[in-house]
Structures are given as structure tokens and as C-alpha cells.
Design a protein around this nucleic acid. Structure first.
Lengths: 140, 140
DNA sequence: CCTTAGATATAGCCAAGGCTACATTTTTGT
DNA sequence: ACAAAAATGTAGCCTTGGCTATATCTAAGG
């Protein structure tokens, strides 16, 4: 427990900003999935998959558009920009790796599925690399 | 990718509610630490450790009180209730276990410290138990 | 003892992410 | 072609968690 107050503040700040971007990552990932399955991401599907009301999904899409992650025309589906695709791809990789690591460490599949969703947004690149190395070692 | 839309919605709901309680857990954990070190948790120390402005900390304390997790009298320090202590203790255990698991899996110490803060709030009891078993096995 | 510095309280602002209720537009089915 | 159903848009409300600015109270120092 010998880390100073400043390090502690840094950790909390990091966790806070990760929480803030977690939703955007979830949306891009979901939109990528829906587009792959159905050719487009409809607002109503987004809302249902996220378990929220559609106006909430509409607001989120507005924000995605404002941040340059998605595009859409009135009464039409939602599509990712290149930046959005990149974020979705990164999220997908991270998600899969976290899930695999949980399994490798002995977490039951159902729990791993549930928990990976929350954990993935807090895994740094460095930690992710360590996960990858650990998994490779195990398989090798 | 064969999980239905409903499971997906459940996962997202779970992650959302965990995000909501994450801050409360962070505060109780921090207040417990400060109380242990200084005999009481001053608002100004809470704010500095969290890296936020003190009115924000004051609001958070109000919420802790409203939820029955802490008590305080005007212009005095903040103290945890039994429920607050319990939450802090649980958070501490989880935090330590997550940190240890990250180390065991090969994550460098600094990254493990940083990431554990965010990850701990998304680890279910079942996953936690698996972590514990994994660590025990490694030591044994 | 009384001033001043430090800590706490309070008011009011903002954005995000939920919601319901209602309006409009598209799609579908007869 | 048109009525009904489904999807989308929009308005307005709430809570949370940030912030700054200002007021008040407590604690320290001279």
C-alpha cells in the first residue's frame, strides 16, 4: 500500500475515462456485428440488443455521429465510419482475448461471457499483450 | 457468436449496473483506507485521492449517506457504516485478488496496478472463485 | 483574541445516459 | 392504393458525476 495519493488519483482517473468510452466501444462493436449479420444496423435492433429504449439508442447514435464514429440518414440504418470500424475491431479483439484468458484461467464459460463484457474496457495494451503471451504459452 | 439478442442485452445490462456501483465501491474502499491511515476520512483527502474537485466529493458523500453506506456531521470527517465497511472489505479483497491474478498471468506490476482498478468492479463471485483456485494451484 | 488560512457547504452550470409520451415517416398487407 | 403496423424522430424529464464560484465555518499563528 505504498503508492502515493497521486498514483491513486491517476488510477481513478484512468478508470473514469475508461468508463466514459466503454459505451461508445460497445456501440461500435454491436453495430459492426449487426451490419455483418443483416447488412445494416437498424436503430430498433441496436436498442433491443443493448436492452435500452430506442430514444436512448438514438441519442447514442447522435453522439457516435458527433464523434465521427458513425453515419446515418433519417429513417435509415446506421453505419460505421473508418474510425468507428477501427474502434469496433479493437474492441472485438480485446473482447475475444479477455474471454479466452478467463477460460484459460478456469472461469466457467457462462461467467466468462458475462464478465468479459465489463472487463474488456479496462484492459490496457500492455496487459492485453501479457494475456496473449500467456495464452500462446499455454497452447504451445 | 451464437448467443441470442437477449443474452447480449443481459450482458450489457450487467455491465451498465456494475458501472453504476463502481464509484460507490471506489469511495468506500478509499474511505476505509483513509480512516485506517489517519483515523478519519476528510473530504479534502477524499477529493485529492480521487483526483476530483471537493464539491464532487461532497456530492458523492451525500449519496453514500443516502444509500446508508456512510455517516458524517457538518464540518467533520466521513465514516463508513457497517454496510459501507462490508462493501469496502469486499472491494479490497476483490481488488487484491484481481491484482494477484494479473501478476500471475504475467502482467507487469505497473500495468496490473492501473488496470486492476477498473477490472475489479466487473468480476463476478464465480470468476473471483476461479481466480482464487488458479492462484492456489500455482502456489501449491 | 482575533486574523487568516484551510476545510466544508451550497448554488448553479453542463453533458451523458436513462426514461415516457407523442409525432412523423416507412413498410407491409389486404 | 390505402389502412395499419412498425420504425424513427423529437420533446421533455430525471439522476449522476463532473466543474467553478462563493459563502461559511473551523483551526492555527501571531
Amino acid at each position: 500500500m505504498s503508492d502515493g495519493v497521486d498514483n491513486q488519483a491517476d488510477r481513478f482517473s484512468k478508470a473514469r475515462s475508461e468508463r466514459a468510452s466503454a459505451l461508445l466501444e460497445d456501440y461500435t462493436e454491436l453495430i459492426a456485428d449487426l451490419t455483418e449479420e443483416h447488412g445494416e444496423a437498424r436503430l430498433v435492433d441496436i436498442a433491443r440488443a443493448m436492452g435500452i429504449a430506442h430514444p436512448t439508442a438514438a441519442k447514442a447514435v447522435s453522439r457516435l455521429k458527433r464523434e465521427g464514429l458513425a453515419t446515418s440518414r433519417p429513417y435509415r440504418g446506421v453505419f460505421l465510419t473508418e474510425a468507428g470500424e477501427a474502434m469496433a475491431e479493437k474492441a472485438r479483439i480485446r473482447h475475444a482475448l479477455v474471454f479466452d484468458l478467463l477460460l484459460a484461467v478456469g472461469v466457467p464459460k457462462e461467467a466468462a461471457e458475462l464478465d468479459a463484457e465489463g472487463i474488456e474496457h479496462h484492459v490496457s495494451d500492455e496487459t492485453l499483450a501479457a494475456f496473449e503471451a500467456f495464452l500462446k504459452k499455454g497452447r504451445g
